[in-house]
Computed example of a mutant assay.
Amino acid sequence: MTQITKRHLDFVQEAKEVFEAAPLLETYRNDDDTLIALRMGMDRDCVEVWELGNKIANFVQQMDPYPMPRKVVREFSYDMEKQLEANENKGGWKEADFEYLQRHLRINANKLNHALSKADKDKHEITIRCTNIANYAMMIADNEGEHL
């Protein structure tokens, strides 16, 4: 097992700064190509460090490019997933007709308008309504639309 040294810890800090400055960057190497940092984790907030040996090859354009969604989009999508999980007992949406999904989208939009009109806004309720609206819109797009 390799012992973690100050050099490794300094490199983690360096990689953190580079990753924060370039949110789409997935790997980072030090100047002398002896260490590589990989952006890891479900939230892409972890840094895995490897010591490098000899380079074998650089295999370019092996995968379709995939842009990293913005932080707010990722966080909102996690909230959407939580709401889908909370309502999993209702079954899927593949068999639901457009009118049913649209009606529930409107119900949630009306509830959102009501929550936003209150002087003492319930931020949790507002997020629930927004995620439900987004989920119903996603269901309609999944059933009736196509990817852009």
Rank of each mutant, 00 (worst) to 15 (best):
T2C: 06
T2R: 10
K6D: 02
R7P: 00
L9K: 03
L9P: 09
F11P: 01
A15R: 03
A15H: 02
V18W: 11
F19L: 06
A21R: 14
P23G: 02
P23D: 02
L24P: 10
L25M: 02
R29F: 08
R29Q: 07
D31H: 05
D31F: 00
D33K: 06
D33Q: 14
T34Q: 08
L35H: 03
L35S: 03
L35R: 01
L35K: 04
A37Y: 05
L38N: 02
D43C: 00
D45E: 07
D45K: 07
C46S: 12
E48W: 09
E48A: 12
G53Y: 01
G53N: 14
G53E: 10
N54I: 02
K55Y: 04
I56D: 10
N58W: 01
N58T: 15
N58L: 01
V60P: 13
Q61P: 03
Q62F: 06
Q62D: 04
Q62H: 08
P65L: 07
P65S: 08
P65D: 09
P67R: 10
M68V: 13
P69M: 10
R70H: 12
R70M: 11
K71Q: 09
K71L: 07
V73Q: 12
R74Q: 05
E75F: 06
S77W: 01
S77K: 03
S77A: 09
Y78P: 00
Y78A: 11
D79I: 00
M80N: 06
E81N: 07
K82H: 01
Q83H: 00
E85Y: 01
E85A: 09
N87K: 12
E88I: 01
E88M: 00
K90N: 07
W93P: 04
K94S: 06
K94Q: 13
E99Q: 13
Y100C: 03
Y100H: 08
Q102F: 13
R103K: 13
R103C: 11
L105I: 10
N108I: 11
A109F: 14
K111L: 15
K111R: 15
H114G: 05
A115C: 13
K121Y: 09
H124D: 15
E125C: 05
E125S: 09
I126M: 07
C130P: 08
T131Q: 00
N132P: 08
N135P: 05
N135G: 14
Y136P: 04
A137E: 11
M138E: 12
M139W: 14
I140W: 11
E144F: 13
G145R: 11
G145E: 04
L148E: 15
